[in-house]
Nucleic acid binder design. Structure first.
Lengths: 217, 217
DNA sequence: TAGATTGTTAATCGATTAACAATC
DNA sequence: TAGATTGTTAATCGATTAACAATC
């Protein structure tokens, strides 16, 4: 058993490495050093080396890593080469935007359908993907062996939707609703937490302004 | 000067506390203890108390915190009561979804307009908000004293857009493009990192499956 | 050989958690 | 008074960074 000991932080940095590596010219940049990557992404060299060590086992002194190999290994590690299917619950603005976003396939995520409680939305399509009534959720998930659920409903419905997903055999939940979800131990919830991000942004600003004020005052 | 020493982690938990507190019945739940909050959100009691201590200075033994006061104080701390204006660059699916999302106002974010390089989109509206050509960015930001820029363009254009934003006097950037942005020291970049989230989700699944396989094998 | 770069071991740093005294 | 709950001080834990030996 490998990769038992990879930290969440490392995991979250890997897509950044991948993104950077892909910007490099395959022909001229055959190899790349941790130093170079670190500089480009504003990270510590040692951190980059440690992160990469948990994914691949190459890396030669004086030379670095073979760019193309590294890309393949990270992609493989992240599972980009064998896509997981997912469903979206909540076909509002955000849900539809995610349904329509083609970039996810590149990341190994295949959104197959959406579900909504609103009868006016049910039956319509977005980006060629159908929107079903909630009553069909469990059956479809089980039949298609779907393990990822994406929650894009308003906060007040999120926990109920979450429970339905768990009941439908979902193992991992990507939660866009700004609430804490309670789930059984074996289920993973990854919060995409816009409110938290905004908190960081707005605090940065208010601090900037109070610094300014102090300088002047 | 207060709040110099608040950690990013604390800051990111505050919206969760707020969300939970708002679900409580104002009439019956006059006060709330850190213990209760911690249990509801699956956090450590002491952590909740420390977080709250950095925002408010009440909290009475045996009683806890006055719910309504706590809500107000957190909202004030997060700046929800004096909204910041923002612009979106990139009026694709995601950009439009964010433009149309009314929830941000509740979080103290007021998106005033969008910008796009595509002539076909320029001039149209979304949720009553106009989409302008990139050439008007700087002028509008300066005139309206806008300090937050939201980047929803494809990865390859993100750095260029970022540079334009910095030039236009933006102080904080909310980046939805899956790339690292290089900015001057005083500018804050908050990455809304879908690729990273997906990495966490898909790794959880592949680990689950390899555990299963081991049990059987 | 000299220098760049690797991977590892140890030190530092910061956040979380545990223990405890203070208070209503 | 006894018990619940607070806030603080100390211990633990994990991640980042620094120092260094190994190697091409």
């Amino acid at each position: 058993m490998i990769d038992q000991g990879i930290s969440k932080q490392t995991l979250q940095r890997l897509p950044f490495y991948l993104g950077y590596l892909k910007t490099l010219d395959k022909v001229t940049v055959e190899t790349v050093s941790a130093t170079t990557i670190a500089e480009a992404l504003n990270l510590n060299q040692v951190q980059v080396r440690k992160d990469l060590a948990s994914v691949c086992s190459l890396g030669r002194p004086k030379i670095g890593y073979v760019t193309q190999e590294l890309i393949c290994e990270i992609e493989h590690f992240l599972g980009y080469d064998n896509a997981e299917s997912a469903v979206i619950i909540g076909a509002g603005k955000l849900g539809k935007a995610l349904l329509g976003y083609r970039g996810f396939e590149e990341y190994g995520l295949n959104i197959v359908a959406a579900f909504d409680a609103d009868e006016n939305v049910v039956g319509t399509e977005e980006n060629g993907k159908k929107i079903f009534p909630m009553s069909k959720l469990k059956n479809l998930c089980e039949r298609m062996k779907i393990h990822i659920g994406i929650i894009t409903v308003p906060a007040e419905y999120a926990q109920r939707v979450c429970d339905s997903l768990v009941e439908s055999g979902i193992l991992a939940i990507w939660n866009f609703a700004p609430v804490h979800l309670t789930v059984p131990e074996h289920i993973l919830v990854q919060n995409e937490n816009m409110a938290s991000s905004l908190a960081v942004l707005s605090k940065h600003l208010s601090q900037k302004f109070s610094e300014e004020a102090q300088k002047i005052g």
